[in-house]
């Protein structure tokens, strides 16, 4: 029943649903695409099982009721049927487990990365270090969102540009490059998550976790901390701008020049 609504929602024209996003984004990386595929596979399997099981149940509710004069049958077990509905779901699960395991092996393979980005979570901002290129900076929520999000700020958050999904310093990454992301934290556990770039991973004090992303399409991708990290957990967004490699190189050079200028200025 509910699954039907779900399907209906998915089938509605995209423009109507623009502000009523109902599904996981397919994203722009191999890992986000595989997560999406597994998600949709499981979704459709559950829809089919749901239609079958609820269908039988609803049929029974309509036709096997006392008010239509149905007499109760006497059966109350059948080893054959019980074995069938133990074995069939098991086989369905095996069919799901194979692609899921393959996907997992692929997602956890961080070898042969082009560049390494180290991300450190703080209460409540992120620090980014480009290990090969020697660039590093902090990134926190932009001032406009930060003002508007105060209790009774009097500001209409609908007028704020990318409310709660905007930062002061954007992470710039090259497209078509395997980026190894190293995650850690300095105080409590955070989780670094940009839905369109694939799954999240926890940034944990004392640990260095790894994930990899390979962005196939230039663009700006927004996310946020996903692990409760204290009072401002809801206010530590992540913004990644993916640009072609050439442009990325220019950005790195610019960052280094700025750094040199800053040091001289001091």
């Amino acid at each position: 029943m509910k699954n039907y609504l779900y399907m209906l929602a998915l089938a509605l024209p995209a423009e109507i649903m623009a502000d009523w996003e109902v599904n996981m984004p397919r994203g722009v990386t191999p890992t986000s695409e595989i997560a999406y595929d597994i998600h949709m596979l499981m979704f459709w399997i559950t829809v089919v099982i749901g239609i079958l099981v609820f269908g039988v149940m609803i049929y029974s509710i309509i036709y096997h009721r006392k008010s239509v004069g149905h007499q109760p049958a006497k059966f109350h077990e059948s080893t054959k049927v019980e074995i069938i509905w133990t074995v069939i779901p098991f086989l369905i699960l095996v069919v799901c487990a194979v692609p899921a395991t393959k996907a997992l092996i692929m997602m956890e393979d961080t070898s042969d990365a082009g560049i390494t980005l180290k991300v450190t979570g703080y209460q409540w901002m992120w620090e980014y270090e480009y290990l090969e290129d020697g660039v590093n900076f902090f990134s926190k929520i932009d001032n406009e969102s930060n003002r508007a999000r105060r209790l009774n700020s009097g500001q209409n958050v609908n007028n704020v540009d990318n409310y709660l999904r905007n930062v002061d310093n954007v992470v710039v990454l090259p497209t078509d490059t395997k980026v190894r992301v190293l995650l850690t934290a300095s105080d409590v556990i955070h989780a670094w998550w940009v839905p369109e770039l694939g799954g999240k991973k926890d940034a944990i004090p004392g640990y260095v976790n790894e994930l990899w992303i390979n962005i196939k399409k230039p663009g700006v991708y927004r996310g946020a901390c996903a692990e409760l990290c204290g009072k401002d957990h809801g206010f530590m967004p992540i913004v990644v701008r993916a640009v072609p490699k050439m442009e990325y190189e220019k950005w790195v050079t610019l960052q280094k020049d700025n750094r040199v200028a800053e040091t001289k200025g001091n």
């Binding site: 029943m1 509910k2 699954n3 996981m24 890992t31 986000s32 595989i34 997560a35 999406y36 597994i38 998600h39 499981m42 979704f43 559950t46 099982i49 749901g50 099981v53 609820f54 149940m57 799901c96 899921a100 996907a103 997992l104 997602m107 989780a191 998550w193 839905p195 694939g198 799954g199 999240k200 991973k201 996903a226 692990e227 409760l228």
Partner: peptide
């Protein structure tokens, strides 16, 4: 039965680690 089963379906989806990386903590 119906609503618990729907909860069970989303539970099965959550069991799939590759997709759970997206679902987790949402």
């Amino acid at each position: 039965i119906i609503l618990f089963t729907i909860g069970g379906f989303s539970g099965l989806m959550l069991a799939m680690t590759p997709a759970d990386f997206q679902y987790h903590d949402t």
